[in-house]
Simulated assay, not measured.
Amino acid sequence: MPRLALVFALLSTPALAQVSTLAGTDGKNALGTVPCATNAGEPLRSCNAELRRHDDGQITLAVGMGNGEVRNIYFTDGVPNSTNSAARLSYETQGNVMVIFVDPGEVYEIPTAALAAQ
């Protein structure tokens, strides 16, 4: 099992006991779930997600928002730099987890190790 799959499956957010899971991987991309909240004030829940690695080294995290929409978060060198939303994007690292915020109230969590260069 590739390192990405292993860390994506095992790391969690201790405070809320939400866990990133892995349903499958082809060694480059991964399907699973990530803790997320898509509306301000709602608790984190598991959202379907796909981590896509591109040949140029960039990464896209596609997260199902539960309403038929998908939030794409784009990374360069392991850092989120934009989304498919016009809203403000920010992030912080809490231990081994990157917490990504999209205004006004979206929150997504992903293990930092999943974003490391392969």
Rank of each mutant, 00 (worst) to 15 (best):
Q94T: 15
A23I: 02
G24Y: 09
G41P: 03
L89F: 06
Q118H: 14
V99W: 01
S12G: 14
T60Y: 03
L89H: 05
T13R: 04
E92Y: 09
P111C: 08
L31P: 00
A17G: 05
T13E: 15
A49H: 01
G27A: 05
D56L: 00
L115S: 08
Q18F: 01
G78C: 12
P111W: 04
T76G: 09
N81W: 12
V79R: 06
V19T: 15
L115C: 12
L61W: 02
N48G: 13
C36G: 13
T13P: 00
E109I: 02
D56M: 00
G24F: 10
A116V: 08
R45I: 15
N84E: 06
N96D: 13
A86Y: 10
T112E: 09
M65V: 04
E69T: 07
V107K: 05
L44R: 04
V19K: 15
L16S: 15
F101G: 03
G27Y: 09
E50K: 10
V107I: 14
F75K: 03
P104C: 06
Y91L: 01
L16H: 13
S82Y: 09
P43Y: 05
E42Q: 14
F75H: 06
V107T: 12
I59W: 02
A23V: 03
Y91W: 15
V79W: 05
R52Y: 08
M1K: 13
I73P: 01
L11V: 12
V99D: 02
G105T: 03
E109K: 05
A40D: 09
D55R: 06
H54P: 01
V63W: 03
E109P: 02
F8V: 04
R88F: 15
A40N: 09
L10C: 12
T60F: 01
V97Y: 01
L6Q: 10
A9N: 10
T60W: 04
A87P: 00
V70G: 07
S82M: 07
E69L: 04
S12Y: 14
L11F: 12
E42M: 11
A117S: 15
S46E: 06
R3F: 07
L6Y: 12
P2R: 09
L11I: 09
A5D: 11
N39G: 05
I100H: 05
L22K: 01
G68I: 03
V63N: 02
D103C: 02
V7T: 13
G24D: 14
P2M: 06
A116G: 11
A30Q: 00
S12E: 15
S12C: 08
L16W: 14
N39T: 13
G105I: 00
R53P: 02
K28F: 08
P80D: 10
Q18D: 10
T25Y: 07
D77F: 09
P111N: 08
K28Q: 13
G41A: 06
N48A: 15
C47H: 14
T21K: 02
A30T: 01
G32R: 00
S20G: 12
T83W: 04
V7M: 11
P104W: 09
T21L: 01
N84H: 09
A117Y: 12
A117N: 13
A9K: 10
T25Q: 05
A86T: 11
H54Y: 13
V107W: 00
V97W: 01
M1G: 13
A117M: 11
S20H: 05
T60A: 07
I73R: 01
